[in-house]
Amino acid sequence: ADVVKMNLNAIYPATNFHSQGAEEFAKRVKEYTGGTVEIAVHPGGALGFKGPELLKAVKDGTVPMSDILMGVVQGSEKTFGISSLPRMVTSYDEAFKLYQSCKDLYDKAAAKWNQKILYVAPWPPSGLFTTKEIKTAADIKGLKTRTYDKNGADFLANLGGSPVSLPWGEVYAALRTGMIDSVLTSAVSGRDAKLWEVLKYFKKIDYAYPLNMVVINLDYWKALTADQKAAMEKAAIEVQEMQWKKSAADNAESLKAIEENGIAISETDAALAAELDAAADAIIKDFVASAGADVAAVVEGYRKSQK
C-alpha cells in the first residue's frame, strides 16, 4: 500500500519533552499502522513558523500537523486561551479536570479551523524566579519580570510589577546585566537555562498549567483509512497519558535540580494566594466578557465547582 507521509511542526527544541512526545507519537503511529503512516517531526521551529499563525497554517494544510501552544493562538480563537488564564488551576489534577470540562469546546473550535486535536499535554506550572526572596505580594511590587504573554504581563502589572517582554534568547544576558531581575517561567525552563547562575529564589505561585495540543489538518485526516485513523487515535491516547505523567515527573525533577544548584524554593501561603487570585480575577473576568457565551459558561461553571 501507499505510505502516507506527513510533516509535524514541533515548536520547541528536540530536547524538550513536548518535542520528544511528538517523536514518540510518530514512532507509535508508524508501528500501529504497520508503517503505512510516516510522520516526520521537525523540532525547533525548523519549518519557519513562530506560533500565532499555526492555526491558520494547519487549517490550510500548509503544514499538515503541528504541536501548538494553545495560549499563543488565542488571537485567532479565543477558546484556546482558557488554559493560559492565571490561577485557574493550581495542581495537575485540577488542570486535568479543567481540560475535561473544556474538551468539547476545544474540539469544536478545532473543527471550525479545519483540524482535529489528537492529544494535549500540559506545561509544568510557571513560578517566579527572582533575585530577592518573595514573601508577600508587596515583594512583587517593582519587579522587572520577563513574561511570555499578555496575561502574564497583566497579572504582574496588577500586582504592581513592571513586566518586560523579551525574546527568550536575550533573557540570560538581560538577567546578568540587570535589565530584568526576575522571570515568570516553569522550573523545567529554569533548569534548562541554568537560571541558578543569575537568580536565587523560586516562588511556586502555580501561575498556570498551559496546554499544548498536537493537531492534524482535517483533509489529511479524512484521507486516511479507518484502520489508520484508529491506530492514530490509539497512539494519541497513550501518548497523552504518558505526557501528563512526564510533565509532572519533569517538574519534580527540575525542582530538585534547581534546588541542588542553590535556588531556594518556597510555597505560596494562604495570604499570598489570596492576593494572587485577586490579581488574576480581573484578567479572567475580562477574558470571559470578551469570549463567547459557551466559553463563559464553561469557565464560570468550572470556577463555581472549585469553590
Binding site: 502516507v4 507521509k5 494544510g61 500548509t62 483533509d219
Partner: peptide, 19 residues
C-alpha cells in the same frame, strides 16, 4: 504526498507568504 483535492500551488503560496 498531498491528500485529494489539495493544490501544491496553494501550499507553496501559503508558505511563501508566511515567510
Amino acid at each position: 504526498n498531498l491528500p485529494p483535492g489539495f493544490s501544491v500551488w496553494t501550499k507553496i503560496g501559503n508558505l511563501l507568504v508566511n515567510s
